[in-house]
Design a protein around this nucleic acid. Structure first.
Lengths: 151, 151
DNA sequence: CAGCATCCATGACGATACTG
DNA sequence: CAGTATCGTCATGGATGCTG
């Protein structure tokens, strides 16, 4: 607590009066949401993007609306529980729409919202990087491990 | 803009264990690198991007080289253990450089590699989305929770 | 300053069984 | 078909103490 560089976490950014220059700087950044501050809600977004399935789901729904079973079939290794859970979270965040048709059995179709479509540009760039630069990462890992093994 | 297809680096391997025969077939059929297959190495990249601190670290190092203590000070809430651990992983992946100066006490400076700089474009787009669209997400959450509370 | 080693709580996640 | 409910496991990551 004596390092006191950041305002104590636990609450959303408050209207605490800046006392010194450092806090003024932090406050200025926070005006737009500072992902580096521990108490910024942006962290929640990173956590969401960071979970195991959100990105894959969004990428699929970015191409076309899909039914639950289609998503499950398309995403290798996802459990029914996690697919449901992740879809609920994405729906809650306003990134995914859920449409229910009262057929028998019931038909549920998911889609990406306009909000999600803007995010998709970034996600596609990310996946694109991952798929094209993967060999370089593998090479770097091999070299690191080799050097590590020698020692 | 979006073509819906990913460039094919053609890095299909059978090193990871498949879940069942059907998924093996799916992975084998897809001529393009398919991030949706359970055994695609791209998943590993997503996991890395997805951990709690990698993105924040990379974003900081994308702006300027930084020392360990600077990173720790700048990233709110990160523990020394996780900062070290994440930096090691990033270094192993060839995304971060580590330079040690034999001063007393020792000085360690981290930086982003060219490989990481290409990824940074995507990460910045992502953070930018998060920081600007956060209000819309918050609104969506509030509405979802309200509807949920009624029932 | 920049770590490493250890203990431990949390919760993310998978497997399984059941339902409208 | 598209879930809900429950249980168990395991990795993530925080707290703490020690070091060159």
């Amino acid at each position: 607590m004596q390092d006191g560089t950041f305002p104590s976490p636990g609450h959303l950014q408050e209207t605490t009066l800046p006392i010194n220059a450092k806090q003024v700087r932090v406050a200025a950044i926070s005006a737009r949401g500072d992902a580096f501050a521990a108490d910024c809600p942006t962290r929640k977004l990173l956590d969401r993007i960071g979970d195991k399935w959100s990105v894959l789901i969004l990428l699929l729904l970015g191409d076309a609306d899909m039914r639950f079973s289609d998503l499950k079939r398309r995403i290798g290794g996802v459990s029914q529980k996690m697919l449901t859970q992740t879809l609920r979270s994405l729906e809650r965040d306003g990134l995914v729409t859920r449409r229910v048709e009262a057929t028998v059995p019931v038909t549920v179709t998911y889609g990406a919202t306009p909000l999600a479509r803007d995010l998709l540009a970034a996600l596609r760039l990310m996946i694109d990087w991952a798929e094209t630069r993967m060999p370089e990462v593998a090479t770097a890992q091999a070299r690191y491990d080799a050097r590590d093994a020698v020692k």
